[in-house]
Design a protein around this nucleic acid. Structure first.
Lengths: 138, 138
DNA sequence: TATTGTTATACTCTATAACTATA
DNA sequence: TATAGTTATAGAGTATAACAATA
């Protein structure tokens, strides 16, 4: 098949989805990157370096990002007694609450995108997408 | 079905795709927004306001964006003789060349994502995604 | 020496508010 | 008056380079 028959609609859908994440984030004064940060911290406690690798950003960028989120009381640095150079990041109760509310908003705002698909088609889509995401350690 | 069974992998895949667009853009000194700009201008000649609406950005943001792209010779403002307030944006030959090369890079870098799927599954995916993108005027 | 994280710096992206020119 | 676009301003996101602390 012509690549574009798949790539074009995929990229289009991605921009729609990212657009939803961006506006929902903005409604809570969160940038797209802050949304990702909270989403990750819901299930993980990475070090700054691990976070940088995962997000594909420089460590210095992460420092600023975490500074701003910490200033809002959304995340916390927890120093590691075994290696005092490194710090683990954790989400606060306030951050978790915001993340949970945001996830619900996102689900609601994403729903219209799935509307053209039958339940059966949505299941098929979920299966295909699931196969595309590599199992990720962390 | 549980929403998250669809939303989670969809969002994951979207971040993968956006990540590819970001790194390919960066390899050509283009931000993600500049990549989108060139992608749109390959097929359209919008006014500044139309572009702002389409990208979901403020008109003032578009001004700066276009300034920087124009300074690199990638796009041009063409004033409309019928309404001298407005300007249509066009891609230059240089911009088109860059966009074409970028699109090829993107296809190459996106390919590993599809690898877990059979050709038949890729066709199915393309069909489902296609149904999700609204026909857009412009 | 190597690694973890921060700081200083500079540029891009973004929105708000105020503005100019045209309609 | 209303609309198209720009400019001034301020803050967030980003990378590079240089740095301090720890290993």
């Amino acid at each position: 098949m012509a690549d574009d028959d798949l790539i074009d609609p995929l990229v289009q859908v991605c921009f729609e989805v990212i657009g939803v994440l961006t506006v929902v984030g903005a409604a809570h004064d969160l940038s797209l990157t802050q949304v990702r940060l909270l989403a990750i911290l819901r299930n993980h406690r990475p070090t700054m370096s691990q976070l940088a690798d995962h997000l594909g950003l420089d460590r210095s960028t992460i420092s600023g990002l975490v500074d701003r989120a910490a200033a809002r009381g959304l995340v916390e640095r927890v120093t590691n007694p075994d290696d005092r150079r490194s710090a683990r990041l954790t989400i606060t109760a306030k951050g978790r609450k915001l993340a949970t509310a945001g996830a619900a908003d996102i689900a609601t705002r994403l729903a219209p995108l799935f509307e053209p698909l039958t339940d059966r088609q949505q299941q098929t889509l979920a299966g295909l997408l699931d196969r595309m995401v590599p199992a990720r350690a962390g």
